[in-house]
Amino acid sequence: MKRAFFVIFLIMMVTSWLAAETKFKMELWNRWTYARADGETIQNEMALKRGYFRLEPKFGQNISGRFNLDFFSDDGPDDGVGIKLKYAYLDFVNLIPIRGSKLTAGLMKTYFGTIYDWDYTTIDKDPSDKYKFVSSTDYGVGIFGYVPNGLGSYAVNLYNGEGYKKTGSDINKDMNINANLRLTPIPGVTVGGSYMMQTKNDDEIDGEKNPDRQENTLIAGMSKLVYGHASLLTQYLMKTVSLPNVDDAEDVTTSVISLMPAYKLNNIFDVVARYDIYDPDTDTDDDGESTFIGGVNYHIMRDAKNAPKLLVQANYQITSYEDAKDDESELMVQLRWIFSETFK
């Protein structure tokens, strides 16, 4: 583990040294979580929920990259910290003859729903990530570009389909196809949609691999409305798992509806809320859950470009289950601190 970390770190540093210009960034999330269910405390802990060290080298005007190491104090093995390589990709601008487009290759963003530009307005993850629709990054190759006149962006990608956390010989080797389009026809009104097709073959019949593939179809629709200091992000996610490789198996459809209103009181305080409805199988009753989140963001410090530099987030979250299970409530207070510098 330590050796792997050292090798990756060394590669990152050598790459940045070779670059014409490199941006270093470090972000740390210190979080206290207090959770209760069934009248009892089930969690009361402080942790470095996430920390990342990022290098963004530019190898000239047409080639740039991003390398990201993620640290987790509560998600690691016995030594108390987990380290994962989250991003390792290169962007090639002007390689394809479409103005404003770039070719990306490596461990890169997953352009599905809002996962690729999720900024953690609430502490919780993006719905696609939280409800295990897709992983936030994956190994692949793709094209990303901007629609002229600031009308939006598009992406077409080919991924491994197993994200960045799985390792070993057990991973599915089928490719994922993904397309994403986001349009802003008028300022403040954004609509978008994503499609992803996955195939898998991890089912066996009588000890033999089944040649037919499991097919997963994922669809995301989003809209974002911004008016003055108020915004409302809505998202609908649907995943259909078809099992033509298993006799008498029926399709399973999972859906998520997510609403996230936010109001910027001033440049220091935001009031945020979120309501998710998760249905793991739309054909089954009483298996769903809903989560309400309410909270405040306190921006202690911002950088020259007004991006957060020192931020305290406080969220109260209630999850209700349709079955007999009791509600779970969670109070989270998180300190996010970010520092970055560009070196030439």
């Binding site: 901007y146 006149n149 009308l151 962006s153 802003t184 300022p187 911004v226």
Partner: peptide
């Protein structure tokens, strides 16, 4: 830049 323009419009800025 294209990126800034898209970002601005998404934020309701013209």
């Amino acid at each position: 830049k294209d990126k800034e323009l898209v970002q601005a419009r998404e934020m309701g800025i013209n």
